[in-house]
Design a protein around this nucleic acid. Structure first.
Length: 477
RNA sequence: GGCGGCAUAGCCAAGUGGUAAGGCGACGGUCUGCAAAACCGUUAUUCACCGGUUCAAAUCCGGUUGCCGCCUCCA
């Protein structure tokens, strides 16, 4: 199955062909480390995590780079308000980020460079831009990129420079020759961190770090560059201008941008203050639920985050795990396979969905189909052949490798879901167990009135009983 | 003001020219002492609205309405 990828500037899907045969260089914009990550970050991180996992699964030799922006105005502001250094702030939030990624089962990128470790590469690139007269030094020792000098400016975001100038919201700074120009190097103010450069004691502009680091690690042309939609303009537009002006090569073959997470239909952002941190959220929401939720819509579409959405993802995940648990507990025998066809169809459909611009939503639908089929087969005959059992496990293992869900032992997962929710019922496990025993005694003596009473009482507290030949189980509704 | 995106059942949501995936919910059934789970069946003649192109349109084109995003830090 060939992979088709949507390319932002073309606005359509195109067969994926890396520059060098099987080798793929992918760069994703990481986070600015001045605060805790929120679920908007989580989406972007998970989307590119899944893309990276899938590319590897397809046999590509991937080098994945995701940066940390560890010097910028917000970090400095944060450091000042805490009375500490920018370094302390950056290091602290890099650690927090790593903790979040562990929680979310997001695999680290191959290379996770920090801007401040690449000041010399940044300076080199700015110097080239200056030599080629794409950049100019302002009176204060800052350096700006001259947008009007670069002919292709606007090709990524589909904007024309004349229109932007006509627009009302371009901010005017005296030091710039043109309002659209942007800083490559900023002279540091008194008390701010600085690095030596040919122009002034200062620090890099925001956009240049990505151009410099991505091309440093991956070469002048990247196969894939991604990030959130909001980075298209100006960040990625500016990155492109700098990199192409400096290196004279096409910067990016495929631009991939993920949609936002919204809350009540509004974009979640720091400035609106309506964000939810990953840490806070994963206190009560299992990380796999969050992953499944974020993968349940196509990566380019917005996702509205709500309790309802979380519950729906939880239900789906539990359904999948219950099926897996059922397969694990089915009596296994040496007998003819009867699920081989199902598993094969599933693998093909899943791959096809993912090859269609990483359509995780469609891939999840395939999982639902498979689950229904397996349950149906086990309803008809609860015995399962060892062959089928291992084929299914292998197939689900592939899904785990790509989606990062179903990574837990099903029985343990279901048990943990139950246990984690006991506290909100106001009952202890012993109390629940006691009531179940009392009810089963009542059932034996055909005192169904008392039995139903107990069941309804537990249900009112959020506990659903499930009778089966093996006994009575319960779960949190 | 400029640029762009989206609009599919009660809800969530796939689907970019070939006759509407999937999930949740609801209803009916099998199972069960009764439930729950699981399974079976029903739940959009129709894809915001109006026109056009085509043998064929949710999909392409033009217009209208509504929502959202970017143009300022943003995943």
């Amino acid at each position: 199955m060939t992979l088709n990828v949507y390319n932002t500037p073309l606005k359509k899907k195109k067969a994926f062909e890396p520059l060098h045969a099987n080798k793929v260089g992918m760069y994703a914009c990481g986070v600015t480390v001045y605060d805790m990550c929120h679920i908007g970050h989580a989406r972007s991180l998970i989307v590119f995590d899944v893309i990276a996992r899938f590319l590897r699964k397809k046999g590509y030799d991937l080098t994945f780079v995701r940066n940390f922006t560890d010097i910028d105005d917000k970090i400095i502001a944060r450091a000042n308000s805490l009375g500490t250094s920018y370094r302390d702030v950056a290091d602290r939030y890099i650690e927090e980020y790593r903790t979040d990624m562990d929680i979310l089962k997001v695999r680290p990128a191959d290379i996770e460079p920090k801007a401040t470790d690449h000041i010399s590469h940044i300076i080199d690139m700015v110097r080239i831009l200056e030599e080629k007269e794409y950049a100019y030094r302002a009176d204060d020792g800052s350096v700006y990129f001259s947008v009007s000098r670069f002919r292709g400016y606007g090709k990524l975001s589909g904007r024309r420079t004349e229109e932007m100038i006509a627009g009302a919201r371009v901010d005017i700074e005296d030091l710039k020759r043109d309002p659209l120009d942007f800083a490559l190097w900023k002279r540091s103010k008194e008390g701010e961190p600085w690095w030596d450069s040919p122009w002034s004691k200062g620090r890099p502009g925001w956009h240049i770090e990505c151009s410099a680091m991505s091309t440093h690690f991956l070469g002048a042309t990247l196969d894939i560059h991604g990030g959130g939609r909001d980075l298209i303009f100006p960040h990625h537009e500016n990155e492109t201008a700098q990199a192409e002006a400096a290196l004279g090569a096409e910067f990016v073959r495929y631009w991939i941008h993920n949609g936002f997470v919204t809350i009540d239909g509004e974009k979640m952002s720091k400035s609106l203050g309506n964000f939810m941190t990953i840490r806070e959220l994963t206190k009560d929401v299992h990380p796999e639920i969050l992953r499944l939720l974020l993968l349940s819509r196509h990566y380019r579409s917005p996702i509205d985050f709500s309790n309802e959405a979380v519950n729906s993802a939880r239900q789906a995940l539990v359904r999948f795990y219950e099926m897996l648990d059922r397969v694990n507990h089915s009596p296994a025998e040496d007998r003819e396979s009867r699920l081989e066809g199902l598993v094969g169809t599933f693998s093909r459909d899943f791959d096809e969905a993912m090859c269609d611009d990483f359509n995780t939503a469609k891939a999840i639908a395939c999982l639902h189909d498979l689950t229904t089929e397996i349950n149906r087969a086990l309803d008809q005959d609860p015995k399962i052949s060892r062959k089928d059992q291992s084929a299914l496990k292998a197939s689900m293992g592939e899904v785990t490798d790509i989606f990062g869900v179903f990574g837990e032992e099903p029985g343990e997962f279901l048990e943990a879901m139950k246990r984690g929710s006991v506290q909100v019922t106001g009952l202890s496990e012993q109390e629940i167990q006691g009531l179940i025993e009392e009810r089963n005694l009542a059932r034996k003596t055909k005192d169904f009135k008392r039995a139903d009473e107990i069941r309804d009482t537990l249900k009112a507290k959020g506990i659903q009983l499930k009778d089966s030949p093996e006994g009575t189980a319960w779960e949190k509704i």
